[in-house]
Computed example of a mutant assay.
Amino acid sequence: MTPLALGPQRIVCLTEEATEWLYLLGQEQRIVGISGYTVRPRRARLEKPKVSAFLTAKIDKILALQPDCVFGFSDLQADIAALLIRAGVQVTIFNQRSVDEIFAMLYQVAAMVGQAEEGLALLQTWRAELDAIAQQAASFKRRPKVFFEEWDTPHISGIRWVSELMGIAGGDDIFPELAVMPMGKDRIIAEGQTIVDRAPDIIIGSWCGKKFRPDTVAARPGWQDVPAVRTGHIFEIKSADILQPGPAALTDGLAQLHRIMAQWEAEHV
């Protein structure tokens, strides 16, 4: 039996990153169900049944697809995983929170579908691109202080891989102590004044599932003297591009971060 035949043939992906990765590996034929939040790649929404949200899933619909493997992400999907496991389904839940863990997760998925060499080649290309961006950023004469807002009410700062990518792109997270906290509830910023006091040069918003509104941020009481507000350096990166701990964050997400940081640095040399 070949290694390819040993891998799962009917896969349900409860989050987008596994779906995007399998498409990039040319293994989309194995996918029988996806998350309803999937937007990358766009064609997946047209080709695959949508069987889950993020915190909920249509268990009966998943079981009817007869998957031989389900991929999920984080402790937040533990209840879904438990129901499927009790129904006899193989479930693999990844919990990647850092850039290195994203690379590790992607390699494991590639290996599981018999694409270890192909996956490794792509990952090495992306790692080289990360290193090249980090080298460019190392030449910055000034590094901007950055506030990444994952949610607005309450204010939630960026998760670890976002903070790390900001650093690679040339900026410094103003809440590095919160970035290491894996759960959003532990990254809640208790007082808005704390953000003002840390005086970010750039504000980046990515409100998961909701459109980011720079004008609303700029109009917040007491924020008029925040450097980012004063100079108009308030940007959105779509959550699908940065809050998905997979290919999107390592490619499009990082590229957008670097453009924002490089633009600011060019204006302040």
Rank of each mutant, 00 (worst) to 15 (best):
E47A: 13
R40M: 11
Q29K: 15
L106Y: 05
V99G: 01
A104M: 05
L76I: 09
R97Q: 15
A53M: 09
L106W: 04
G72I: 03
D75C: 05
V32T: 06
S35G: 12
F73G: 05
T56S: 09
A53K: 13
D100N: 12
R40S: 12
E47Q: 14
L106A: 10
A82I: 02
F73P: 04
R45C: 11
A82S: 14
V91K: 01
A53Y: 02
V99L: 04
A64E: 13
N95L: 00
D79P: 02
G88Y: 04
S98H: 03
P41S: 12
V91T: 04
E28T: 00
I62H: 01
F73H: 14
F71C: 06
D75T: 14
K50M: 09
F94P: 09
S74E: 10
G88T: 01
I85T: 15
S52A: 10
S74W: 03
A82R: 14
D68P: 01
I102C: 06
A57I: 10
L55S: 11
Y37S: 12
L63N: 01
A82M: 11
Q66F: 02
D60Y: 00
L55A: 09
R86I: 08
S98E: 04
Y37K: 12
I59Y: 06
L63F: 00
A104Q: 13
R97K: 15
Q108E: 14
A44P: 01
R45Q: 15
P49E: 07
D68M: 00
T56K: 05
C69H: 01
P67E: 13
G36H: 11
R43Q: 15
Q77L: 07
V51C: 02
T56V: 06
R40P: 00
V91N: 03
A104N: 10
C69Q: 14
D75I: 10
V51H: 02
A104I: 08
T38P: 05
L83V: 12
Q108G: 02
A87V: 03
P49G: 08
F103C: 11
E101W: 07
D68G: 00
A53E: 00
F94I: 09
Q77G: 11
Q29I: 10
R30N: 07
I62N: 02
C69K: 09
A53D: 09
F73C: 10
A44H: 01
S35R: 13
T92V: 14
R97Y: 08
C69M: 15
I80M: 07
Y37F: 15
R86W: 04
K61S: 14
I85C: 08
F94N: 10
S98F: 06
V70D: 11
L76E: 13
F103V: 13
Q108V: 11
S74F: 05
I93D: 12
G88Q: 04
I31G: 03
D79K: 11
